[in-house]
Design a protein around this nucleic acid. Structure first.
Lengths: 346, 346
DNA sequence: CTGAAAGCGCTTACAG
DNA sequence: CTGAAAGCGCTTACAG
């Protein structure tokens, strides 16, 4: 066990309260005394016990709000697991997490949720933002007027006063896919991209990263598409069929969004599953299965749980210890998996 | 804030001590009373506050010993960071971690360290074992006679009474490399393996996994080697030269151990860097650099920090909460990285 | 079998 | 500017 505040108090011949004031710069203490106490603490190798600290501070009840968008999707379900993990941790440290799940995507609901959280007295908010001016203004309002710090996750909102962002670097994700695809097809031939929505910034950035890196590193690869499938298997299948018909010599497909199953089914129908190299995103749905059977060659993914866990913990550490986040952009790791590196518990 | 033991005591009309006895099955309580209290706790949604628990239990001072082997190597330095992280966490929860670094590899020193830890009164040990009968016997002695649970990490010691193992599944790691190599070389041609020591089980398992999976999935690939380089760059270069001379049509090299730089230098000398596809292990030394410059195509690695962190925390959770580890073999994730997925802080 | 009390290390009004 | 005391939620001897 370490040195305690009581031992320092005894060594310095003062009360514990005085030691506390000295060590935590709370003022209302004679500077010389404070200096002397700090020195003694230093000499004795004092390290504050977080347990005592947390228990004693749990009266203050740090309350953190979380707003999740599109909460029904499989990906967000994983993010949710991370949020729950953070919630348990915060709970066990005497804080509270207030969670608001918005089933689909709604700017109106988001603003309502923010206001609700404010009325509940949260001291900070972690949220998935939406590209709307009103939301942007609201984030700035909360941060500047109400002094409620905000962390964005999953999607960023760059030109706001948000504290930081936790999520994937989608452009880099696309580049990683390009690096893989280039090697898979031997650096030449036709490669197609199928994406979800042209309006979704994450997906667009994957497309952009993929295309630009192919052009730089594998100039002999010809890019087909992007086609859009609206994250729908049937439409993804149709897009695949169209691509296959127009490009019988197709060597690879990069799928930025959901709809993988539709693509694989169509490839199978044309007897091309496994020979057309396929790279997809995220470790959800049937993706592992499709990889095991050889239709998908690589999966690129993110640790969805971390996206839920970190934003909450960043805010907790800020409120509890005054610890600032490490950086404004906290990109999650980009995982590459092949059929041999599928985690066992799935 | 959650429900407290005091609220339950009031609701049940008993003392807090009685609630504690009921909820933690400490006995010395009338069964009916215990049942009723448990039911009330359930109804009120009681979740014990870890903070109060930990603070109160910090009198007992849980002490965990860690024995690190070959502590001077870069890999173990990363493992060490994980140990330090766990140590901080354990400290802040009122426990103690006693660390013993053995600079090289020594069975004698390992046993001395174990005895030292016992004399210091540790309640559990996390250690890197060595393939020696004496160590094996000592592990069993500690577990069975002294009731000091032991977790092995990095290397396992399967036929002992150790609680569990945290580390890489080396065979699977080799298979993952085979899957990558197969795609890199287009499923045919000559591929070589260079390893470190034939006596090291982890390295041998990588070689085995690589070879066996190539045979199954890419029967048209011809395997050259393994050659051994004793983790030395110069010897690795010589091995590479020999392989290149004997196999001018070589398409790929899988390097199971250190010595990557020597291989890459020799490939460059023969003008084959980048065209001979190379896969190496671990995110240390110059590996990222070699990947950025295109000499290494994929790196397979493990989260070294986790190997230090988890064993300590597994033991802490066991001693503090009575929580059993999830399984006997806790394989760390096998990471695949290409030049686009190099973490930013490196 | 049960309760009252002390204690873990820290923070925080309150009194002076 | 400083101290004495109460309290955070739990556990643990001790007394009965």
């Amino acid at each position: 066990m370490g040195v305690t505040i009581r031992q320092i108090a005894e060594a310095a011949g003062v009360s514990r309260g005085t030691v506390d004031r000295a060590l935590n710069n709370r003022g209302r203490i004679k500077p010389e005394v404070a200096d002397r106490i700090r020195q003694i603490a230093e000499e004795m190798g004092y390290k504050p016990n977080q347990l005592g600290r947390a228990l004693s501070m749990s009266k203050n009840n740090i309350k953190i709000g979380v707003i999740l968008q599109a909460a029904e999707t499989p990906f967000m379900q994983c993010v949710l697991e991370g949020i729950e993990r953070a919630k348990d941790e915060v709970d066990s440290l005497g804080g509270t997490v207030l969670l608001c799940k918005i089933p689909h995507i709604s700017g109106r609901d988001t603003i309502d949720a923010m206001e609700h959280m404010r009325s509940e007295g949260v001291s900070a908010i972690a949220m998935v933002p939406i590209e709307e001016e009103e939301i942007k203004a609201h984030i700035n309002l909360f941060v500047e007027e109400y002094h409620i710090p905000i962390v964005t996750f999953n999607s960023d909102m760059e030109d706001t006063k948000r504290l930081c962002f936790v999520g994937q670097n989608a452009f880099q994700c696309g580049r990683a896919a390009a690096g893989l695809m280039g090697e898979l097809v031997g650096g030449c031939g036709k490669v197609a991209v199928i994406s979800g929505y042209s309006s979704n910034p994450s997906l667009s950035n994957r497309v952009l990263g993929f295309g630009s890196e192919l052009k730089i590193k594998y100039p002999e690869i010809e890019l087909v598409g992007p086609e859009y499938c609206f994250e729908d298997n049937h439409l993804a299948g149709q897009a695949t069929e169209k691509i296959l018909k127009e490009n019988p010599d197709l060597k690879g497909i990069y799928m930025t969004s959901h709809g993988e199953e539709g693509v694989c089914r169509m490839l199978a129908k044309y007897g091309r599953a496994g020979t057309v190299k396929m790279i997809a995103n995220d470790f959800m749905g049937k993706n592992y299965e499709l990889m095991r059977e050889g239709s998908i060659h690589f999966l690129i993914g993110q640790d969805a749980q971390i996206q839920g866990y970190e934003p909450v913990m960043i805010l907790f550490r800020l409120l509890f210890n005054g610890e600032q986040p490490k950086g404004e952009l906290q990109y999650t790791e980009i995982f590459i998996r092949n059929e041999y590196t599928i985690p066992e518990n799935l």
